[in-house]
């Protein structure tokens, strides 16, 4: 049961990253690789703030998200004001963030072993002892109370993050942002400041990525400068697998499906690891999962789309 709970916890934490990727990938139609840098930035900032003791764990999360938002603003400004290709702007900021993260932490790795994080705060709130490793039965399987609490907290945070994003995208500003990505000409003609919307959207996306990183660091007990590497693929995989499973792309379903995609993907990885897959093949397996998610729905539709595409 602990394995399952751990998988769900990571799945929920990374679903915040997936929500961020959803914004850049599905609203603005490009995969913003800044997310890899801002995930590590969120982790570094949270780790430094938590170990400094000057901020509570919740405040640390919030400030980390703001740091990520700033990184997103940078990418957005490079892209819109300096007309740098969006992918390139993302790569530039991600590269720069690596050094920034080293400076933020002052070293490449910070341990959060016995520090107060949101997870320990949540345990205290539920009067769960840190030292005693109590177990409970969930569905007849023994589970560590702490792991269960962590999974519950991750679920709460992921669903509140998702709900917040859902609410925002339904507001007047959120609708304008979606229109900016969907039909820039229309948005501009109706008075939407498209450049500002892209900057704001990327900042929200990276705030989510940073929040995800801060939570990951809190949960796993350390922040490392290399944490973000390869994370964009996880996020994209979650979004794409989610879309394949839930065939409705309206905002609410898109957000829900990204969260579910994240969970399902983590489960697949956990099963693969559990059944002794050679760890060297893990990245290959990731690519194959995503490929399957992209290709299967087309085959499932009876090849109609393939034929249609060929005629075009």
């Amino acid at each position: 049961m602990n394995l399952l709970l751990g998988t769900f916890t990571i799945g929920f934490i990374l679903s915040l990253l997936a929500a961020g990727v959803l914004i850049s990938f599905r609203i603005f139609n490009f995969a913003d690789i800044t997310a890899e840098g801002s995930l590590a930035l969120g982790a570094s900032t949270a780790a430094v703030l938590i170990t400094s003791g000057a901020f509570g764990p919740a405040a640390a999360l919030l400030i980390s998200a703001l740091a990520g938002a700033a990184a997103g603003v940078l990418t957005g400004v490079l892209h819109t004001k300096f007309k740098i290709n969006a992918l390139l702007a993302g790569i530039l900021v991600m590269t720069a963030l690596y050094s920034v993260n080293l400076h933020v932490m002052g070293k490449s790795n910070i341990a959060l072993m016995n520090e107060e994080t949101v997870f320990t705060s949540f345990n205290r709130l539920l009067s769960i002892s840190e030292s005693a490793n109590k177990t409970v039965l969930i569905l007849g399987f023994p589970a560590s109370v702490k792991e269960a609490a962590a999974a519950a907290l991750a679920f709460i945070l992921a669903s509140s993050g998702g709900a917040l994003l859902y609410w925002f995208l339904g507001t007047e500003l959120g609708a304008a942002m979606r229109a900016t990505g969907n039909c820039p000409q229309m948005a501009a003609a109706l008075g939407v400041n498209t450049e500002l919307m892209i900057i704001a959207g990327l900042s929200i996306a990276n705030a989510f990525a940073a929040l995800s990183g801060a939570l990951l660091a809190s949960y796993q007990g350390f922040a490392d400068v290399q944490m973000g590497i390869g994370m964009l693929v996880w996020g994209l995989a979650s979004v794409i697998i989610g879309e394949t499973l839930v065939r409705d792309k309206s905002v609410g379903f898109a957000i829900t499906s990204a969260i579910m995609g994240s969970i399902f993907f983590r489960l697949l990885v956990a099963i693969a690891l559990r059944f002794g897959m050679n760890p060297n093949d893990m990245k290959l397996m990731t690519a194959l999962f995503v490929l399957a998610a992209l290709v299967l729905p087309r085959i499932y539709k009876g090849g109609g789309r393939f034929a249609g595409a060929a005629v075009k």
């Binding site: 602990n2 394995l3 796993q220 590497i229 390869g230 994370m231 990885v269 690891l273 559990r274 760890p279």
Partner: peptide
């Protein structure tokens, strides 16, 4: 493979 999320999965496994 330098992947934090995978590292956690490994520890759980």
């Amino acid at each position: 493979h330098s992947d934090s999320a995978a590292l956690n999965g490994i520890i759980d496994a």
